[in-house]
Design a protein around this nucleic acid. Structure first.
Lengths: 172, 172
DNA sequence: ATTTTTAGTCAGGGGGACCTGATTAAAAAA
DNA sequence: TTTTTTAATCAGGTCCCCCTGACTAAAAAT
């Protein structure tokens, strides 16, 4: 069993990481005056974008189901993304009830750029540390997947199939 | 110079971590039906709570200044926290313009519990990995502090003095 | 040919993070 | 003492995430 004080230490640093990272983000964003360019979160509009980046041309219903959102929420996010010209909506010809959502070039780029950007702080690490970090994160993520699976197996399946695998495709 | 593909790999896992962690959070929260109990973020109301956990009994103005918020935003967050019975407001007797904000027992507990909770996923790591992780996070945080310092030295000072030190007190 | 299911939409709402502007009451400076 | 500064408040706004309820149009089932 792992050392509790070591765990606490890491937990603290993890929280600090979260806080400092966010603050650093705010500051650099303020400086650059990049209004629309927030870090892509796995939430709301970002969630949609990421899901489309993996499988483009899904219907709103599909997106809603996969991302565990209501149809209305999905519609809202999609509409916002349309306004930002990151996705397009078009009626399906096969089934005229359905609306197919597609990434625009800009949307595809945003999804790729914003999410896949390598954070500068990783430059502070050596190759060895990067390897260690990768191993650690792999373990942690596996543990979190387990947790999700325990509470909600169906969600786990959907989740892992869609977005998590996307990232693996991009990075490996 | 570090290996770019290693960096990308880690960057991906970090994003995945963010996504999976949030999803796991949502699920467990939904199960537990804990409505008010979100993870404390270093933002808005959480920011206030954390600052008070370090130095209780600050005035709204002090909080606003330290946390780089407007007086109005600060008031809003404080009022919300009052409604949730996590803090109390009382007029300063020394200077009747000032309002002193204090944590309630529940507030103190929330700040401690919610932020200092050791995430379960750390159980997946060995002692060696915890050490490595600590080293890595220390470096990363230092790098982020540098970044903050570069763009906004004054903020850096305030920030580090308040919240980062809080965490150090708690964990070391 | 109806009824039912499905995909979306509109309307409205709850919370959250922030902000600007205008105003009041109390302390500090002139 | 009068003016100015300071701490807070109210009012109102922007944008974000996310949900329920009510309603249409089109496809599927009966």
């Amino acid at each position: 069993m792992p050392n509790l004080s070591k765990q606490k230490n890491v937990a603290g640093k993890l929280i600090e990481f979260g806080m400092v990272r966010q603050t650093a983000d705010e500051i650099t964003h303020r400086r650059h005056q990049n209004k629309g360019e927030h870090q892509l979160r796995f939430q709301g509009q970002g969630k949609i974008l990421l899901a489309l980046a993996q499988t483009d041309g899904q219907s709103q219903k599909e997106l809603a189901t996969r991302l565990n959102l209501t149809a209305q929420s999905t519609a809202e996010f999609v509409n916002k993304l349309v306004k930002k010209q990151l996705v397009t909506k078009e009626k399906s010809t096969a089934d005229r009830r359905k609306t197919i959502i597609r990434l625009t070039d800009s949307g595809r780029q945003t999804a790729a750029t914003e999410s896949v950007k390598v954070p500068e702080f990783l430059n502070a690490l050596t190759d060895t540390e990067l390897d260690q970090f990768a191993t650690i994160l792999t373990k942690i993520n596996a543990s979190l997947y387990d947790e999700i699976n325990t509470y909600n197996p169906s969600w786990h399946t959907k989740f892992q199939q869609t977005v998590a695998d996307t990232l693996r495709d991009w990075f490996l």
